[in-house]
Design a protein around this nucleic acid. Structure first.
Length: 884
DNA sequence: CTAGGGTTAG
């Protein structure tokens, strides 16, 4: 009868969709009496081929269930990693009065070990003893393993001691147990002991040692053993040994090295298997190597059986989901015959990542209809996925849904929910979760602490974030990362980099996450030195560089004024995505290198990558900064005709900027009139800015009419308009605008410039005399003024707002923050060094003129970034061509 | 049915 299932398999497969009771009915009609036995066989078949829904339907309808049917269905749940269900069914079986056998116990222990629930395991063990089972070697092995995986080494040791016939498998379980938790001394002693007792270590023993070193991040030790053991007669590197090295690297965030080892393995002629491939695909996912991942997928399709493997398929579903290619992800998901929890979770997380609400809900329904309960990983995947997509609201809905189903949130859930709170700025719920954490005595662990810090900073309460940070007694790299990110994202770049320094002073080693938040902080502050050091740190420590980091490096160098270094990074990175091109084009634009931006765009087109709206915004803005009017028009048309991208208001604003900067006001006004979208503040702002360059107070007035309506609280617009009036000598109008500003309670942020000297950022606010070196700075300013006046500098007092005496105006100009920063830079850095100055507002016209002269008399290159672009002052000339 | 390498949430 055993052969019946195999022989009849094709027929049964065709019957899959038929309800089992029909089969049952047919059996009765055909007069077969052994229906219980046949149903049992049918069930075993379904379990064997992994047809969970059919197996479950049949099992539920069976009139009588014996130990074989119970064992089959329990085994299937266990094999598909539905561990809670495995245990639940075991207890149901006992309640049903069925006496378990030696085959079912290992499955229950396996489920306990996966769930890390030794209490249930111990309970089942006690029950086993109570019904007179001593346990055969198989049961004892799974018991040992269960206690060890649950961290109950003492239970395992006691059990092990009492086993009379210790076989090599049992010894290996102990060796691996010690080694995995990092106790290599005990593990090696265990190997000695087994040799003393006459049991010879085998390949598995040594693979466990290598794997444990690798999993613990001790890669040197792992490869030392790997090579040293090759001379011993019971070890040859095989696919398991190689895979152990690879997966250890992936799990410890060293995916690039994992891929190198994989390459070596292939060169050595060792055939990878499904586990190797799953790890390698995951490495590609981590490094966002979309091309490489697809190549490996192609290899799987070519290699018999690999692409049908659930493990490989799961990793591919995850890979494509993270690539945001849900169609291919779903195709891979659909092809999995025996979907396990990981499959569902990966696919659902993919839907969440792209905000596909309906699809996610539909899939959850499908999952539940197959008798699979979303367990906690599913919920967490949904919560974190939606948050990453930017839909914190839906994430919190799922959080509440999960809470309603009675599942206890774990640390990941809490972190995810807090991140969602930060996103939707729900301080109330955030605080509620905070008190929930305290009430439920969650250990104030790293995960919870960091999530609280980001929640408070996300809700714009950096001070509460800091107080959480201060209350923590132990601060590991994750906590430091959280506070660095919190400062950085709250606009406190200086504090953020100070925190980075403090962290290193506390001997906490930064990791990749640190870099993710520190690099943008460097970019904002133009802290080139720190940025470079971070780059060097990444190289020195061979940290994994994902595309996000590569792109951040390009952006950092660009915003720090080193456009050449930005281009070097761009050229050397292994794979460029669209963001890389966009960031690089933006960099050229900011620096006024319009033609370089245009050339890079040509290269981008040649790669076949499809530009998006950001690409065109950056490109058009680059054209505008360099006065490339014809090119700008061309790209504006190309966007529609070749890429069918409908220009958004952002691109229209770029065009207005382009035309108006060039002084083509008639064309500009016609363009604005004809645009199909409602002009927004960016459009009018561009026009107003151009009116300053070309001194056109009438049109300025017109643009400001809209602008002051659209952004009544934006001080920059009032200032710009008042400056234009002042420059045109219309003092009365200037004063009127300043009064209007006061009436509306709009305050102008003070002009502020900063310069980084030797790891410290020095901040200067207009008129501020508090810097400790103020006397020296003032003296330097005085001598500079004398020098530059001699070669033709005339103070341009029309930029001074106050209607005051001329000499007083000149004095007021001296206090401008960019001049203070330059003077300080000159006295605190060696001659010949370039100066990099950042200003929060638009650079003032007089400062621009003075800086040109200063670059000439001092022979220094002065690189100044204002809120719009870069100015490179070299030998009396600025790269912006006085056109900004 | 058992030991080594394991994919999904952070």
């Amino acid at each position: 009868m055993a052969s019946m299932a195999t022989c009849a398999a094709p027929t049964f497969l065709r019957l899959n969709l038929e309800a089992p009771h029909k089969i049952h009915a047919r059996m009765i009609v055909s007069g077969v009496d052994f229906c219980v036995f046949l149903l049992g066989q049918l069930l075993e078949f379904y379990c064997k081929v992994g047809c969970l829904d059919n197996a479950k339907l049949l099992f539920d309808k069976m009139p009588e269930r014996n130990v074989f049917s119970w064992t089959a269905i329990i085994g299937l749940y266990c094999r598909l990693s539905y561990y809670e269900e495995t245990i639940r069914l075991f207890y149901l079986m006992v309640d049903d009065g069925v006496r378990p056998d030696h085959f079912v116990f290992p499955k229950v222990f396996k489920a306990c070990s996966e769930l890390k629930d030794y209490r249930v395991g111990k309970d089942v063990y006690d029950y086993m003893l109570s019904i007179g089972f001593e346990g055969n070697p198989f049961v004892k092995r799974s018991l040992l393993d269960m206690f060890i995986k649950c961290g109950k080494m003492d239970f395992a040791r006691r059990l092990f001691k009492d086993i009379e016939l210790k076989d090599v498998v049992m010894w290996n379980i102990m060796v691996s147990g010690y080694a995995t938790k990092g106790d290599f001394r005990q593990a090696l002693k265990c190997i000695k002991d087994m040799e003393i007792e006459g049991v010879k270590p085998n390949q598995v023993t040594w693979n466990s040692i290598i794997a444990a070193y690798s999993q613990n991040g001790l890669f040197e030790e792992a490869s030392d053993w790997f090579f040293k053991l090759q001379s011993s007669d019971n070890f040859t590197p095989n696919v398991v040994s190689w895979t152990a090295l690879i997966s250890g690297n992936v799990q410890n965030g060293c995916s690039s090295r994992a891929l190198q080892i994989f390459k070596q393995m292939v060169i050595e002629g060792v055939e990878p298997n499904s586990i190797t491939i799953a790890s390698v695909v995951s490495a590609c996912t981590n490094l966002s190597l979309s091309q490489h991942g697809k190549e490996i997928h192609a290899y799987c399709i070519k290699t018999e059986g690999l692409d049908l493997d659930v493990l490989v398929s799961n990793s591919l579903v995850d890979f494509y989901a993270k690539c945001r290619d849900l169609e291919v992800a779903r195709k891979n998901f659909n092809r999995i015959e025996q979907k396990d929890l990981v499959s569902w979770n990966a696919m659902l997380a993919g839907y969440a990542l792209k905000g596909c609400r309906e699809e996610a809900i539909e899939l959850i329904k499908e999952m539940e209809s197959q008798g699979i309960e979303p367990d906690i990983v599913t919920w967490n995947g949904l919560i974190t996925g939606y948050t990453q997509f930017g839909d914190g609201k839906t994430a919190l809905e799922f959080f509440c849904k999960m809470y309603a189903t009675g599942i206890n949130p774990n640390i990941t859930t809490i972190s995810g929910a807090l991140a969602a709170c930060a996103q939707v700025k729900d301080l109330r719920l955030g605080k509620e979760i905070h008190s929930f954490v305290i009430r439920n005595q969650f250990e104030m662990s790293t995960g919870v602490g960091s999530a609280l810090i980001s929640m408070y900073s996300g809700c714009q309460h950096l001070e509460l974030a800091c107080s959480v940070f201060n209350e923590l007694t132990t601060r590991d790299v994750v906590i430091w990362n959280a506070i660095i990110t919190a400062c950085s994202q709250s606009g406190q770049g200086i504090s953020s980099l100070n925190m980075l320094r403090d962290m290193q002073l506390h001997n906490v080693e930064p990791n990749m996450v640190t870099m993710v938040s520190a690099l943008p902080a460097c970019a904002r502050l133009a802290a080139l030195q720190q940025g470079k050091e971070i780059h060097q740190f990444i190289i020195r420590h061979e940290l994994d560089v994902c595309s996000f980091i590569w792109n951040s490096l390009i952006d950092m160098y660009g915003r720090c004024g080193s456009i050449k270094a930005a281009r070097r990074v761009f050229d050397m990175m292994p794979q460029r995505d669209l963001v890389s091109w966009n960031v690089m084009i933006a960099g050229y634009g900011m620096h006024g290198f319009g033609m370089d931006a245009v050339n890079l765009f040509r290269h981008l087109r040649a790669t076949g990558l499809k530009p998006n709206h950001y690409t065109f915004t950056n490109l058009l803005s680059a054209c505008s900064h360099s006065g490339l009017i014809d090119e700008g028009w061309g790209y504006f048309e190309m966007m529609k005709s070749e890429y069918s991208l409908e220009p958004a208001v952002g691109q229209y604003a770029c065009m207005v900027d382009l035309l108006a900067r060039a002084g083509q006001f008639v064309e500009t006004m016609a363009f604005i009139k004809e645009m199909p979208l409602e002009p927004n503040s960016a459009v009018w702002g561009s026009l107003l800015g151009a009116c300053r360059i070309h001194l056109n107070p009438e049109l300025a007035e017109y643009a400001a009419g809209y602008l002051l309506e659209l952004e009544p609280q934006n001080s920059g617009n009032y200032i710009l308009l008042a400056n234009i009036y002042s420059a045109a000598g219309r003092w009365g109008d200037a004063t009127r605008i300043r009064c209007l500003m006061k009436e509306r309670g709009v305050t102008k942020p003070p002009g502020c410039s900063w310069i980084a000297v030797k790891h410290r950022v020095h901040n200067f606010i207009v008129g501020d005399t508090s810097h400790p070196l103020m006397d020296a700075i003032a003296a330097k300013m005085e001598s500079l003024y004398a020098e530059i006046k001699e070669i033709g500098y005339v103070p341009d007092t029309k930029f001074v707002l106050q209607n005051v005496e001329e000499d007083e105006k000149e004095y007021s100009l001296c206090g401008h923050s960019e001049k203070l920063a330059i003077a300080f830079g000159l006295i605190s850095t060696p001659p010949g060094n370039p100066l990099r100055i950042i200003k929060n507002l638009r650079v003032c016209g007089d400062c621009h003129s003075a800086t040109k002269f200063i670059s000439k008399v001092t022979g220094r290159e002065i690189i100044m970034r204002d809120c719009y672009r870069f100015h490179h002052f070299i030998n009396g000339v600025c790269t912006c061509g006085d056109y900004w």
